[in-house]
C-alpha cells in the first residue's frame, strides 16, 4: 500500500545547482547549504523513501505562455534534464513511475476534482533539480522514482494557497489508495522571500521567512487564506512560490513531527529546508 513517510519543504534556488556541480562544499559561503541538507538526505535514505512527488514550477524550460497549465503532472518513466540556457546539467535523467503517476491522476481527477494536465513527455529544470541531488542519491542513478507536479506560479491568475492545500489533501488520498507498496515523500519547493524584478529587486524578509517556517509546521491553516498580494508584499513578487509548500503540508497529518530545519539568507533568496513526519499520536 502507498504511505506518505515524509514531508519536505525546500527552496529551489538555481545557484544550488551550480554549487553542487562545482563541489563548493568546502567554500565557507556554500558550506551552510551542504551541511543544512546532509541530515535530510541521510534521514530520507534511512526511512526508505521509494517515491518522491515534487510540487515545483517550471521556469520557461518546457512550458511557455502560449499554453500554460495551472497544474501539470508527469506520467512517464523518465524525465530528461532540461537545458536552461547553459546546456543540461550532468545528472542522470530523473526516473519516474508511470503506473504510480496514472494512479495519482485517476484519484486526483475523479475523487478530488483536480483536473490536471497529464504530461507523458516532460523536461525538468531547477524548480525540481536544484534540491533533488541534495536530497537523494543519483550515482549511478537516482534511488527514488519521482513524480513532477508543475504549478503555475508565474502568470497571474495563480491558484490560491487554499487550492494548493487541497491539492495536498488530494495527494494524500491518492497515495493511500495505491495498491502497491510505495514509501512516498511529498516535496513542496520554492522561495523563500525573493524578488527578481523592478526596483524592489533583492527584497528579502527574514522575519517573515521564520514566521512562515513556524506556521507551516504548527499552524498551516493560518496561511491558506492569505491572498497573493500579501505573499508578494511580505516576501517579494517571486516568493509566491512559497504557496507550493502548502501542497506538501496539506498531505501531512494535522500535527507533525519536525525532523530537521535549515535556513540561510546570503544574497537574493531565503534558502530553507523543512523535513516533517506525520504525528499520529493522540493529543494529550
Amino acid at each position: 500500500m502507498g504511505k506518505i513517510v515524509a514531508g519536505v519543504g525546500t527552496s529551489h534556488v538555481p545557484s544550488y545547482g551550480v554549487a553542487y556541480d562545482t563541489n563548493q562544499q568546502d567554500n565557507p559561503k556554500w558550506a551552510p547549504v551542504f551541511e543544512g541538507y546532509a541530515p535530510a538526505k541521510a534521514w530520507l535514505k534511512e526511512i526508505g523513501v521509494t517515491h518522491a512527488i515534487v510540487i515545483y514550477n517550471d521556469h520557461g524550460t518546457d512550458f511557455f505562455y502560449d499554453k500554460y497549465p495551472t497544474f501539470a503532472m508527469g506520467a512517464a518513466d523518465e524525465y530528461p534534464i532540461g537545458d536552461e540556457g547553459w546546456g543540461p546539467r550532468n545528472l542522470p535523467s530523473v526516473k519516474g513511475d508511470s503506473d504510480f503517476s496514472w494512479h495519482l491522476a485517476n484519484s486526483l481527477v475523479k475523487e478530488s476534482e483536480f483536473d490536471l494536465t497529464i504530461c507523458q513527455q516532460l523536461e525538468v529544470d531547477h524548480g525540481l533539480l536544484s534540491p533533488h541531488p541534495f536530497l537523494f542519491d543519483h550515482d549511478p542513478d537516482w534511488d527514488v522514482k519521482t513524480v513532477p507536479l508543475n504549478v503555475n506560479v508565474l502568470q497571474h491568475p495563480l491558484p490560491t494557497a487554499r487550492r494548493l492545500w487541497k491539492l495536498g489533501q488530494g495527494l494524500r488520498k491518492a497515495v493511500e489508495s495505491y495498491p502497491q507498496d510505495a514509501r512516498v515523500a511529498v516535496i513542496g519547493t520554492g522561495g523563500l522571500s525573493h524578488q527578481l524584478h523592478g526596483n524592489r529587486f533583492g527584497h528579502m524578509n527574514e522575519a517573515w521567512d521564520h514566521e512562515f517556517l513556524d506556521l507551516i509546521e504548527d499552524n498551516p491553516e493560518a496561511l491558506i487564506d492569505l491572498p497573493h498580494d500579501t505573499w508578494m508584499e511580505r516576501g517579494g513578487a517571486e516568493s509566491v512560490e512559497m504557496t507550493m509548500w502548502l501542497a506538501m503540508r496539506g498531505a501531512m497529518t494535522p500535527k507533525v513531527k519536525k525532523i530537521h530545519r535549515f535556513y540561510y539568507l546570503p544574497m537574493l533568496t531565503g534558502m530553507a529546508l523543512t523535513v516533517l513526519e506525520d504525528d499520529t499520536t493522540e493529543a494529550a
Binding site: 524550460t61 511557455f64 505562455y65 502560449d66 537545458d83 540556457g85 497571474h156 524584478h197
Partner: peptide, 26 residues
C-alpha cells in the same frame, strides 16, 4: 507594491513575442 510589476495576463499578452523569443533561447 512599489517597484513591483506583477506578471498579469495583460502583460503576458503584450510581451508574448518578446517572451517567446527569450524562451526560444533554451
Amino acid at each position: 507594491i512599489p517597484g513591483t510589476f506583477v506578471f498579469t495576463g495583460q502583460r503576458s499578452r503584450k510581451g508574448l513575442n518578446l517572451n517567446r523569443f527569450a524562451y526560444s533561447l533554451h
